[in-house]
Design a protein around this nucleic acid. Structure first.
Lengths: 152, 152
DNA sequence: CTTGAAAAAGCGTTAGC
DNA sequence: GCTAACGCTTTTTCAAG
């Protein structure tokens, strides 16, 4: 990947607000509109930019309960279970991990009943041995952002 | 929150691609451009839409290592530790949780050395009693999307 | 209150440098 | 990397539902 400083500056601005116009970005960075256009297009073509998304308030949408669920499963069933779980629209992240658990899931639920139903369903899946649910009391930070390349 | 069906349809489209033009959305839904504009503006003003973000490929940006870290800490130090951790641009999520750990963190690192340095730093913080790192081997799903309101 | 047509201001995209 | 230009898009206004 040959990303330079300009690409990064553009990404940073887009991350701040993906709806900034090319002209606004150009003005901010003191470069031409066409250049911004070409750079963003290149970043999309290369797959560095995968897409543009909305950042919504889940609480206001009625999904105010977040949980992190660790799952221990039978080796040969793990991939199938992961795929199964991923289908649910309440599931934000599914990670295949090493360590105490085999799968870690981050999910958003309407309420405890909604969460409970999901966990019970999880436990009913063939190969799931054990689950451990950590209910989120406070979302201190929740944003996929581009890390600084120069951080200690 | 008085969200109706139209608001949800608009949100769904924006979630698919936040750069859809109002015109495209209007055409897709068979309504006027002005209506789409007004609805999105309302959703932003109400805070349902918090912003628009870029979805980037962290691997291509050089942050191919994801980890989920559980932290056990002394009660009175938890909030301070959470704030401290949140400052790092490598940290995507910081959750204050109930259960086995007090804090759960999702982070992106350059490599194992980068991760190790972070975990060592974590352990050096006043009040941190124990950490448990699950290294992500495969990202099966990783997207904050709007849950279907009608899911079993 | 919400809707949507129309007009003005602003924007994406292209081609050539 | 820049400029210029065309056609399309956003945003405002405003009259009607």
């Amino acid at each position: 990947m040959n990303m330079d400083d300009l690409d990064l500056k553009i990404l940073k601005l887009l991350q701040e607000n993906a709806r900034y116009s090319y002209r606004e970005i150009a003005k901010e960075l003191g470069i031409a509109v066409g250049t911004v256009y070409n750079r963003i297009k290149k970043l999309e073509d290369e797959g560095v930019i995968r897409g543009f998304c909305v950042d919504v308030d889940y609480e206001k949408l009625g999904f105010g309960l977040t949980a992190v669920i660790g799952i221990k499963a039978r080796g040969k069933d793990i991939v199938r279970i992961e795929k199964e779980i991923s289908k649910s629209s309440r599931i934000m992240q599914v990670y295949d991990v090493t360590g105490e658990y085999d799968i870690i899931v981050v999910a958003k639920f309407r309420d405890r009943a909604d969460m409970n139903k999901f966990v019970k369903w999880l436990l009913s899946l063939e190969g799931v041995e054990k689950t451990n649910t950590s209910v989120v009391m406070d979302i201190v930070k929740e944003k996929f952002a581009i890390p600084l390349l120069t951080e200690e």
